Simulated assay, not measured.
Amino acid sequence: MATIKVSGMSCQHCVNAVTKALSGIDGVQDVKVSLEKKQADFTETKPVSREVIREALQKAGHDLG
């Protein structure tokens, strides 16, 4: 399981947006986002570059922390 820090989250809507953004990446599944910890845990079914993750988060209004 991979863990990333996510900046810019402040509410449940943010959690939902980050979950949706990460879940939409090919190779990412089982996404669990924690508002309290400001992080996301997920399973990579194949290697996913951090740049792909960053771009998906930025489109959702957030960034890697």
Rank of each mutant, 00 (worst) to 15 (best):
H62N: 03
M9G: 02
L64P: 05
Q12I: 00
L64H: 04
A17N: 03
G61Y: 01
K59E: 08
I4F: 03
R54V: 12
H62V: 01
Q58F: 14
E51Q: 15
K37E: 11
T19N: 08
K5D: 08
K5L: 12
S7I: 02
E36V: 14
I53H: 05
T43H: 10
L64V: 04
R54P: 06
K38T: 06
K5G: 09
L35C: 01
P47Y: 09
D30T: 10
V48C: 07
A60C: 03
M9W: 02
L35S: 01
Q58C: 13
A21W: 03
K46D: 13
Q58M: 13
E51G: 14
K46M: 13
V48F: 07
I4Q: 03
S23G: 13
V33W: 07
S7L: 04
G24K: 07
L22H: 03
I53E: 06
G61L: 02
E44C: 09
M1N: 07
T3K: 05
E55P: 11
V6M: 01
Q29V: 15
D26E: 13
C14N: 02
P47Q: 12
C11P: 00
N16E: 14
H13G: 05
R50Y: 13
G27P: 11
M1L: 06
A60L: 03
T45L: 15
G27E: 13
N16Y: 09
V31L: 05
M9D: 02
I25S: 07
G8Q: 00
S10H: 09
L22C: 05
H62F: 04
V48N: 08
K20M: 10
Q39N: 12
H13M: 06
R54S: 10
K38H: 10
E55L: 12
V31M: 06
R50M: 14
T45S: 13
L57W: 03
V48A: 08
D41F: 12
G27H: 11
